Simulated assay, not measured.
Amino acid sequence: MIRSFILVAASLVLHLAAPTRLWVGNSLPLSDTQHSALLWCLKWALTLWATTDINSILNRWAENKWLWKTDASGWVWGQEIAVVTGGSRGIGACVVKQLVSYGIHCAVLDVIPLSETFTDDERRLVRYYKCDITSPTAIHSAAEAIRSDLGSPSILINNAGIGNGSTILDIPFENVQRLFQINILSQFSTVKEFLPDMLAKKKGHIMSVASLASFVSLAGAVDYSCTKSGLLSFHEGLGQELKYRHKCPQIKTTIVHPNWTKSAITAHPAVEAGLKRIGAKLLEAEDVAGAMVKQIIAAKSGQLILGPGISPKIRALPLWLQELVRDSQAYVVNGSGTTG
């Protein structure tokens, strides 16, 4: 923003002090008409630049729940405890490994044991709890065990998620039900378990992993798209409740929207062939995890768009343009099956 004001001021000085004919270098004189055109372009370009900067600042202010300053001094990473659902493999495991590198203790909730990629040193800061997160009772039991073993967590990363690859008519209802239980309903249970302690301490960070499917629904993955757009509503509503029901904007909330990432979902035959057809470049799980952990360490709220920056703006486009975007993705998910 400061650089925009400097440039605007410079343009005003130029406008007031410039001679009738402006020389560029030693050999390119500008006529009065060209000079006026240059000033007009400069004025509007700088105005647009300043407006963009101001908009970015307002966006960051809003994301931070109208708090001007982000104070990370209250976080002592060697004393913090993070809960990561689906943290045994994939993006979740990468997140755990990177959190541990800061000395953060991690409690992993998963139905499968920790992968062999964890070193002995990392495992000293990681505690695995076998937990089926489709069950609120199982989540409560795991939360009680975490509080007893480690203490009250200050970080909750709702990472667990699965995908199905079937049309609305073909998918068994039990598959839809399980996907909703894992991808979104479990987050109601985890937040119910861990938010009260965060409120008592006025410190915490709750992160949800969504997808660019939050903004574009995919044929053959309607249930998945529904849960990811639902997570965006969950994130927005949670932020509102923290500000106006609990009077605790200090608790950070983040939602992550990765583009297609190397994972069990993208490796599934129902998806892999479609991604190759459109020439999609997959993100690495480590890079997605890196952005997530960076947000945690910065103690900032917000939305992380790990893909085309225009993605959240798609819903603001004319309907015919929205439909063209959806059409371009119509055969990415083309098959049947589930990753969970």
Rank of each mutant, 00 (worst) to 15 (best):
T338H: 08
L58Y: 14
S31I: 03
C226L: 13
S328F: 12
I104W: 01
L125P: 03
K228L: 11
D53A: 14
P136T: 13
T254G: 00
W260M: 07
A9M: 14
A82M: 01
H15L: 15
S154L: 07
D110H: 02
L67D: 04
T190C: 11
I81H: 02
T33C: 03
G340T: 04
P196I: 10
L232V: 11
I157C: 08
T137Y: 03
G290F: 12
I310L: 09
V126N: 07
K203H: 13
D327G: 09
L283A: 14
K202G: 06
M1A: 14
I91F: 04
A299S: 11
L30K: 04
P136Q: 08
R89N: 13
T254I: 01
A273E: 12
H246D: 13
D71G: 01
V100R: 03
L232F: 11
E122A: 04
N159F: 01
D71T: 00
D197K: 09
I255S: 03
T85C: 07
L242Y: 02
L232N: 09
E174M: 09
L67Y: 00
M292L: 10
H246T: 01
E144S: 09
V256R: 01
K276M: 05
E286S: 13
A200C: 05
E286G: 07
S36Q: 15
L28A: 15
L48F: 12
L275V: 02
L30N: 08
L14Y: 14
V100M: 04
R178K: 13
N164L: 07
D110I: 08
T254F: 04
T85W: 05
V271E: 04
G307M: 01
G161H: 05
A160R: 01
V13I: 11
D121C: 02
V293L: 00
S229C: 13
S186Y: 13
K203Y: 02
S27R: 07
S233V: 09
K252D: 02
D32Y: 01
L185N: 04
H205E: 05
S11D: 11
H105L: 06
P308A: 10
I184S: 03
L30H: 07
L67Q: 15
A145F: 05
P196L: 09
G78S: 12
K201S: 13
P318K: 04
A138I: 10
P269W: 04
N64T: 03
T52G: 11
T134W: 08
I133A: 05
P308E: 02
V332S: 03
N175E: 14
S328V: 01
I112N: 13
I305L: 10
G103M: 09
V95N: 06
T33W: 14
A213T: 14
L156I: 06
A93I: 06
S225Q: 07
Q34H: 08
G92V: 06
E272R: 07
H205S: 06
S154K: 10
Y331T: 12
G90R: 00
V209W: 05
N158P: 00
K300G: 00
L275F: 05
P312C: 02
S301T: 08
W75A: 04
Q250V: 11
L28W: 14
H235C: 08
D120V: 10
G25E: 11
D223N: 12
K262S: 09
S88K: 00
Q303N: 14
Q79V: 01
L28D: 08
H246C: 05
T137R: 06
I57A: 07
S141F: 05
K65T: 02
